[in-house]
Structures are given as C-alpha cells and as structure tokens.
C-alpha cells in the first residue's frame, strides 16, 4: 500500500516555495487586544467619553463629599431652612436645614451602589442561565426559558410588594426586588449569542480536541459574547437606579433620614410651589446619571461590535 502519486505534472504544479516567498502572506497589523481596540473606538465617541468622565466624577464626589463636608446628611439646622444656593451651601438647604449637596452625594452612593449591585447580580445569574440554555439546548432550554418567561410575565411591582412584605422596607429588599426578574433580559441575550456561537468552527474544534462543556461555554462562547453582555449590563444600571428612585419616591426602600434621590424628590414635592429649586437637584441627578449611562451603553455597543463601526 501507500503508493504515492508520482505524476510529473503534479510535481510541477506543487513545487515548494522559496523561504522568502513563504513570508509574502504576512499581513502586518499592529497587535492590539480586543479590548484595546474597543477602547480606541469608544474614545472616538465624544458623547460617551464625556458621559464616562461625568460618571467617574460623580463617583468620586459620592465617595468624598460626605466624608469631607462639614455637614452631614442627617443633621438639621432649623435656623437655616430652605436656603438658596450660596457659598456655604452650594445647592442650598432643605426644609429641615440639611445641606442638599451632601444629601445628593449621599444619595448618589445609594443610587450607584444599587445600580451596580443589581447589574452584577443580574450579570451573574443571567450569563450562567442564558449560557446553559443556549449551550445545552433541547428540552432543558425549553423548560428553563418557559420558566423565565413566567417570571418575566408577572408585573415587577408584585415582586416589590411581596419582597417588602417578607423582608421589610430596606435597601436590600429593593435590590432583591429588582433582581427577581432583572436577569431575564441578560439571560435571553446570552442565550441567543451562545446559540449562534456554538455552531462556529472554533467551538466545534474545541469539542473535537476534547474540551469539556464548561470550558467550551466559558472559555469560547461567553468570552466571545462579552460585547453584548457589557452593553446589557450598562443599560441595566440606569434601569435599577430608576426603579430604586421610583420606589423611594413612593416611600419604599431606604429609611429616613437617609437620603436617596427618589426620597429627596418626594420631600421636595410639598415645597414645589414655594421652593421649586429643591425639586430640581434630585431630578437633575437622576436624569444626568441615567442619560450618561445610556450614552455609555450606546458607545460600548458601537465599540464592542465590529459590525457597527
């Protein structure tokens, strides 16, 4: 056996190349990792970049203002109520004489913490749930996704009420209530991604070389869905922030005298006629934060998806 084809014509057609010819194929591209590349594109989007800086600035203020300010979020000064913005109180004081700037920044801590905590919880559950559904498919996928549909179909206010009844009205209940159904969008997105990526040849190659299910799922499929996952996550943060603000506005969530943007807006309601400026600050904080997070989400969406560049 093993007779080789010794056609003269064959030999001539497939003569080996010389050494320098072999390197003709090389394409010189500057070596950049995916994330470096994405950052370069993200930076070109001015709106997203400004939003990112704004958010970082807000974060620094939220951390340091309550520490270094001479005022605290709870101390009342009844001789200084409803002061307009001035040198001592940059944003003025409220009806109890509390410094609004400090309270807004304290509220920023709560809002950002709730927003990011919810996003991380949802990320964790959503990615694993969606990944497992998309990867294993079949009946498991059908059952798990129908279950997710059922959770999603129940109005979220119902979860809020149930959670508050069981765990009381505090910030963790708010977080829990947001997380009960918040992960489903992420799970659906990851599932769709994994479903299409698992047919790619590199995933099949991993199977052929003996990779286990978890290695294929995390190393190859989920790591290649990082773009949509990050975008989904940045869009989840403002959603959670808004839900928390809304719940605080209707009086659920944090307990007084703690401040949240929602509860501040609620307190300013009674002074809307006489001191409308007090309503302006929490509303501005909520809208600017949500707006910048949405811009960042859009920017990431463009930067991380090569087709959208």
């Amino acid at each position: 056996m093993n007779q080789t084809v010794t056609s003269e014509q064959g030999r001539n057609l497939f003569a080996p190349l010389s050494e320098d010819e072999k390197n003709n194929e090389f394409i010189a591209v500057e070596s950049k990792t995916y994330l470096q590349d994405a950052w370069a594109h993200f930076r070109k989007n001015k709106l997203a970049l400004i939003s990112l800086y704004f958010l970082l600035f807000m974060l620094l203020l939220a951390i340091f203002v309550p520490i270094f300010s001479p005022y605290s979020y709870y101390e009342q000064d009844l001789t200084m109520t409803n002061v307009l913005p001035c040198a001592a109180h940059p944003l003025g004081t409220d009806k109890f004489g509390r410094d609004i700037f400090v309270r807004i920044m304290y509220g920023a801590r709560i809002s950002l913490a709730v927003g990011f905590a919810a996003a991380f919880i949802n990320l964790f559950i959503g990615v694993i749930y969606g990944g497992v559904c998309g990867y294993f498919g079949g009946r498991l996928d059908m059952v798990l996704m129908r279950f997710a549909d059922i959770i999603y179909s129940i109005p979220s206010m119902l979860y809020v009420i149930m959670v508050m009844l069981v765990f009381g009205s505090n910030i963790f209940s708010v977080l829990l209530a947001i997380s009960v159904s918040g992960w489903i969008g992420m799970a659906r997105q990851v599932r769709t991604q994994v479903l299409s990526l698992k047919e790619r040849e590199y995933a099949q190659a991993a199977r052929v070389m003996g990779a286990g299910h978890w290695r294929i799922l995390f190393q190859h499929l989920i790591s290649n869905s990082i773009g949509p996952i990050l975008v989904n996550m940045t869009l989840m943060v403002p959603e959670a922030i808004f839900t928390e603000a809304f719940l605080a506005f209707v009086g659920i969530g944090i307990s007084i005298p703690q401040s949240s943007w929602g509860s501040m807006a609620n307190e300013a309601r009674s002074l809307l006629q006489s001191h409308p400026i007090q309503m302006l600050w929490p509303v501005l904080a909520i809208s600017l934060t949500m707006l910048s997070l949405n811009f960042i989400g859009d920017g990431l969406n463009e930067a991380l998806d090569p087709r959208k560049r």
Binding site: Y34, R200, E201, Y202, Q204, A205, A206, Q219, H220, S223
Partner: peptide, 12 residues
C-alpha cells in the same frame, strides 16, 4: 481541520 480559516480560531 475546518474549511473556514476565519471561523476556526477563537478571535479572543
């Protein structure tokens, strides 16, 4: 060895 050299290596 797969047909599509662009799809058979994990881009990450």
């Amino acid at each position: 060895i797969f047909q599509d050299p662009y799809a058979s290596l994990d881009p990450r």
